[in-house]
Nucleic acid binder design. Structure first.
Lengths: 195, 195
DNA sequence: TTTGATTTTGAGCGATTGCTCAAGTTAAAA
DNA sequence: TTTTAACTTGAGCAATCGCTCAAAATCAAA
């Protein structure tokens, strides 16, 4: 090798991810991306192949970041369910002012790519499935630790969690309802424990 | 007046609404619209002013259609809550194969228009507020009829309904989980009655 | 230093975008 | 009829899109 790439791939992907998350795929132009990640077209296309290639890597990176965020909440909490509640509170309340959007980037992707034959649509389903499977594992552990009754399967808990979490994030994607977030999150977890 | 417009405005708006709902605002080109509504640019722009103008009318029309759909479910049901459940079942289960998207067009709009200064973003909030107010009225009636306990306010019920409904529609925007819809809707209404 | 494979740069291409407007068509009023 | 204001048409404009590629810059190895 006689020369190295100068940009830091991980950093660039995170910056692109922020922009794609905020504006969506279609509304983000390659010029917007050039400015955000400080790279010229030639470099972008040699590194990522296409705008779609960069988006794919951005969405995967986003999903990874979410799971990392959950993991760190779990480490800081004595219980699985407590860790998950902290995670939900962080996303919906604490991070709201800094995040590019209140709505999950995976949900935005699933909204935006209507064509079921589109690769980006399938990608959003794949990543969503993996996230659901990860949640299932967590709920299986929570049941094993007797934090939850075992009458409902881990998969059912995971589905319930996703529906609530997605619904809540959608609801709070607007100004002026901030004070409702905590009671509605409390309600969500209270209900979950009665399932 | 020496001549009349030849197209039927309501029919055209419904057709445009279908396309916008499916593909979103940005991914729908004016050429796509021309084909879908069978009008040429000059006519479209003289009738609606801009692509955005047609979208605004389409989104308002969509919201009106939803409320009409609820009203007809209420007429066919002896109870408010029963009518609402039929409505949810119709949207999530029965209409799914014909609808342009499983996800509410209002939610899609709220996802797509990230810029808080955008008129389309405000419009999606306004229409969403009006829908929530309409739901509040229905829940107030349901409480008055003693279908629900009055310990929770109509507004709280409306918020709960919106979060659940949005979350469920997002979850079922994918193939292969159809058989989960009915039990999850049953669960939603069962929980609502215990609030 | 020189070499030369690799990476970066940015002008600019062809395609598509939202939209305009002059010309053609229509039909109620005169 | 003829007139004429309203409506429809579609070629095509300016702007922007995703992307290419020849030239310049870079730096480890020789």
């Amino acid at each position: 090798m006689v020369n190295k790439v100068k940009f830091e791939r991980e950093k660039v992907v995170r910056l692109a991810s922020q922009l794609f998350w905020e504006k969506g795929f279609n509304a983000t132009s390659t010029r917007d991306l050039q400015d955000a990640i400080n790279m010229r077209p030639g470099s972008i296309y040699s590194a990522f192949g296409s705008k779609e290639g960069l988006y794919i890597e951005s969405l995967k990176n986003y999903t990874m970041q979410i799971e990392d965020q959950i993991k760190s909440c779990l480490l800081a909490s004595p219980t699985i369910i407590g860790g998950l509640q902290t995670f939900v509170e962080n996303v919906i309340i604490k991070d709201k002012k800094n995040a590019p959007s209140a709505i999950c980037m995976l949900v935005k992707a699933n909204c935006e790519f209507a064509d079921e034959d589109s690769g980006l649509y399938s990608l959003s389903l794949d990543l969503s499935d993996k996230f659901e499977a990860y949640l299932s594992d967590l709920f299986a552990q929570a049941i094993a630790r007797e934090e939850l009754k075992g009458e409902v399967s881990p998969k059912d808990y995971a589905r319930f969690f996703k529906v609530q979490f997605t619904g809540l994030r959608g609801y709070f994607n607007r100004p002026g309802v901030e004070e409702l977030a905590q009671p509605m999150i409390d309600q969500m977890f209270k209900i979950m424990k009665t399932l």
